[in-house]
Structures are given as structure tokens and as C-alpha cells.
Amino acid sequence: MPNIAVELGKQAAEFGVKSAYGEPQDVDGTSITPVAVTVTGFGAGTAEAGEGGGGYGVSIPLGVYVRREEGLRFEPNPVPLIVVAIPFVWVAGRALARVIRALKK
């Protein structure tokens, strides 16, 4: 049986920038390039442990780079921004409430 870790390592080396930046697309004379955060992980076992392997991958779209005559601009995707902002606002609100409560004493 081939070494699973080596095979997964060879495949992971190809991910890099290709997975974070998509191929540029032309839409009505405007060039757009999608941008994402990608995370991958792999695991492998040995003959002593019963052999096996697995992996995962996550890609979160951040937005697109838009190239027009005026220049290059990044336009964020609001969905990941909201997903990140909700827990941040909750934690910040809790911390602020504790600070206010401590200052009242």
C-alpha cells in the first residue's frame, strides 16, 4: 500500500493560491477575481494502528477583486462579515456590560 501521508502531501502542494484566488472572469467588460479563505487538513494511520486516513477542506468566500477602467477594488462578501460580526458583537456587549457594572461599584 502506498504511503498515504506522502500522497496527500503531494496533492496539498497544488492547493495554495489556486484555492484562495479563483480564475478571473470577464462580466460585461469588468474583470472579477473571487477570493476565499481555505483550510485543509489531512491525517493518516499506520499498519500498527490499523491503517487509514482522512481529510477535510473548508472554503469561505470573502469577496471579489473588481477591475474596471477606474482601477482595482475589493468588494467584500457580506455573509461572512455578518457571520463573524454576530459573535464579536455579542462578546463585546457582554464585556462592556461587565465593565459598566464594575465601574458602578
Rank of each mutant, 00 (worst) to 15 (best):
E75M: 12
I82D: 09
T46W: 01
I86L: 05
M1L: 14
F88N: 12
G22Q: 00
A97T: 11
E23T: 12
G29E: 00
V27G: 07
E70Q: 09
F74H: 03
Y65G: 09
E75Y: 14
R73K: 08
T46K: 05
E7K: 07
L72C: 05
P87A: 01
I86Y: 03
A85Y: 06
T40L: 13
G52I: 01
A36W: 00
A36Q: 01
A102C: 07
G57D: 02
V89F: 06
V17M: 14
M1S: 14
P80Q: 01
P24A: 01
G43W: 13
G71P: 00
P87L: 00
A97I: 07
G63N: 00
I100T: 14
K104M: 04
K105G: 09
G53L: 00
R94V: 09
G57V: 03
I100P: 11
V37I: 15
E51T: 11
N3Q: 13
A85P: 07
G45Q: 06
E70S: 13
V64A: 07
Q11P: 13
T30K: 01
E48A: 15
A20I: 09
P76N: 07
P76L: 03
A20Q: 08
A44Y: 05
Q11I: 15
G29V: 01
K18R: 15
V66R: 14
A97W: 07
G52M: 01
G57P: 00
W90T: 15
R98Y: 04
Y65Q: 11
F88I: 14
L96M: 13
Y56V: 14
G29K: 00
A36D: 02
T40V: 15
A36R: 03
N77E: 05
F74E: 02
A85S: 12
N77H: 03
G50M: 02
E75T: 06
G53P: 00
F15D: 08
A95H: 11
S31Q: 14
A102R: 14
Y65W: 12
V6K: 15
T33R: 09
K10W: 07
Q25E: 07
K105W: 10
V6G: 10
V27T: 10
P78E: 04
